[in-house]
Amino acid sequence: HSIEQTEIADLPACDSLNPGNLQLVSKLKNPSGSCSVDVSAMWWERAGLKEPCIITACEYVVSLWKPLDTWQWKNIYTWHFTEVPVLQIVPVPDVCNLVCVALGNLEIRELRALFCSPDDGSEKQVLLKSGNIKAVLGLTKRRLVNSSGTLCDQQVEIMTFAEDGGNKEKQFLMPPEETVLTFAEVQGLQEALLGTTVMNNIVIWNLKTGQLLKKMHIDDSYQASVCHKAYSEMGLLFVILSHPCAKESESLGSPVFQLIVINPKTTLNVGVMLYCLPPGQAGRFLEGDVKDDRAAAVLTSGAVAIWDLLLGHCTALLPPVPDQNWSFVKWSGTDSHLLAGQKDGNIFVYRYS
């Protein structure tokens, strides 16, 4: 395996919004010729040493990169796919040396686990599930949840991996009578799981018993909301949503994320804050990631915008490089870096402060 990477690039720079917040520290060039689709960061152990690695996905290739000195990266493992392209990386927290991927064309058709053989170190992959998969999320305690099937035979399934990534157990949650679009864990309640549905409901399950506890209808102003983060505090449920279908409004600008608060006992809920673009910026949410009190989104304008969820405003903007829009963005799970990627395989690592 050669070192495919990288010198610190001098572009793209952060614009004048708050230039101190984002500092480019590294660039990684994915050598695969196919279109780059996702990036993630995870811990990987080799020869007894656990390292914060980067994982990149192109349509037919997933690569694992280990850190070298001076912010360079070395490709150590590569998994190849021949029939169905990769749609997204699905990191599973608390599992070392295993990552899941979702494959499909427009919709997810397969979930696969990627790992290495303990015997000879060669790349391995196993099919976890195939079918009409609507949503998937890696959960704490080595669990993976997915929803599949059509409305009348929808299944919501939890797989639990053993510590070494093998021997998975299966459990089913009670399906709601509408298609689940996204999942989110609830900070502060380990056994709770949220889902958003096509009917603009938020559903909540008890992961231990599989019970569907409540269906809570949220504001119809935004359809098909995506749930990024949820936490329980003082008897209330706080949820960060994004609205890929939101229309830009002259008075409010473009709401990219929203914080709502729900009383799960009564299902009554109210919007607390809209996270909009700064004046003069246009674009709708394409895809994004929320970690702790930071939210990042790729916008239809090709830019990346970052919000401080506590301050309530946009703190940094990465404009598109000429002829090269941003296409995906993730917060690193192993440190406080932002990973921003472009379709041509360039991944930029930024320090955000």
Binding site: E191, N206, T209, Q211, K214, L236, N263, K265
Partner: peptide, 23 residues
């Protein structure tokens, strides 16, 4: 927002909903 708009709040909502929901 006003908490009163959300109705009576319970700190143990998760346990309470779990005991009320069908198994």
């Amino acid at each position: 927002c006003n908490k009163a708009d959300l109705g009576p709040i319970s700190l143990n909502w998760f346990e309470e909903l779990s005991s009320e929901a069908p198994p």
